[in-house]
Nucleic acid binder design. Structure first.
Lengths: 189, 189
DNA sequence: CAAATCATTTGTCATTTGGCAAAAAGCAAT
DNA sequence: ATTGCTTTTTGCCAAATGACAAATGATTTG
């Protein structure tokens, strides 16, 4: 819980009562490896914060291949914002890649926080905007760089991920085949 | 001006006085082909709305190659949000690809609107979030699809762009060489 | 119109990557 | 240790793409 509060305070001020209110609304959720936090085709109804473990967002492209869109590490919010906010069906799965411990807020509790805490909406907007900009920034280089540099960049961006997830997830994140990734890894050693 | 107001009203309500205030703050800016709206290394100090013409956001990667990050068509806001908001130096150029007619707001006028119009911040947040989500959605397929499909998707996303911009911009957007793009175009016909 | 300039296409060859299948390595249960 | 299962690495060949240079086409300028 402490890490969540610290995380939130980076984006704005909250007084002790407000912090207390937030803490009261959060419930702990444990996900086992491979379980879903939210699913494509359903409306996302909760906001999560990863305390322990790695999750990923993935979808199936028009060839039916599973594509990892990004990884979410410890101390980050996990929410399908578009689905959650607009109450539309999600197009992606959010899946635990390792066993995970999360703090979650239900949609109603989240809404109550928005109605109760002055400035909460600003904090949330800042968090979401920052996350979105980060996604753009991380995705962009994937287009222009060659596969080796993409992998090196991946290692920089997610230094704690590569040894904790299947390489197939990494290769689909990088947009290459598993064998290509394997060859790249060999060349780099 | 009318198109700007219509655009804004998609994201929230504004009363006639508010609309009038916004209209008063906007000034028209004409950019000739190749001129910059904002530049890398400088702090972005204005928000624009494209009435006519096409702009693009581009940067130079570590090999010194020019990379087009995306195109901005008519009836869209053009602003380097990260630089404008945080007053940090931008890492990208915003350039007119054709002759352009824009409506622009200075940073101070924009701030005044934020202070004066109740709900303006919410409208702005919505616009920015939507634009960022669109960027993520447009960039993601570029990673996993092969070059031909990327080009086809580009044509879908930007149906009015391909005939108005140099193909070199398109190829750098797609992350392929100009000759590859040329061959792809030949195959598709 | 001709010349100059820039954009696009094409040709050739080298390199990268994909597709597929088999081998090797890692891991868990017995 | 052995077995079965999954993940990762390799090998082989075909296809896609890049690099570079030359040719063609389009546009501008005098």
């Amino acid at each position: 819980m402490k890490t969540l509060i610290e995380y939130l305070l980076q984006f704005g001020n909250l007084n002790p009562q407000q912090i207390d209110l937030i803490a009261k609304k959060a419930t702990e959720l444990n996900l086992q490896k491979d379980e879903y936090f939210s699913e494509a085709g359903k409306i996302s109804r909760q906001v999560g914060f990863v305390i322990d473990g790695i999750t990923r967002v993935c979808y199936y492209n028009n060839k039916g291949e599973e594509v990892t869109k990004y990884f979410i590490e410890e101390n980050n919010l996990v929410v399908d914002f578009e689905s959650f906010d607009n109450e539309i069906c999600s197009s992606a799965y959010v899946q635990a890649v390792t066993d995970c411990r999360l703090l979650v807020f239900s949609k109603t509790d989240w809404q109550e926080l928005l109605d109760t805490i002055v400035g909460w909406d600003t904090i949330v907007h800042k968090i979401i905007s920052k996350a979105l900009m980060q996604k753009v920034a991380r995705r962009s280089p994937l287009v222009t760089e060659d596969a080796t540099e993409r992998y090196l960049k991946f290692l920089e961006i997610y230094p704690n991920v590569v040894n904790r997830v299947p390489l197939s997830y990494v290769s689909s994140y990088l947009g290459i085949t598993q064998s290509s990734l394997s060859r790249i890894r060999k060349n780099i050693r």
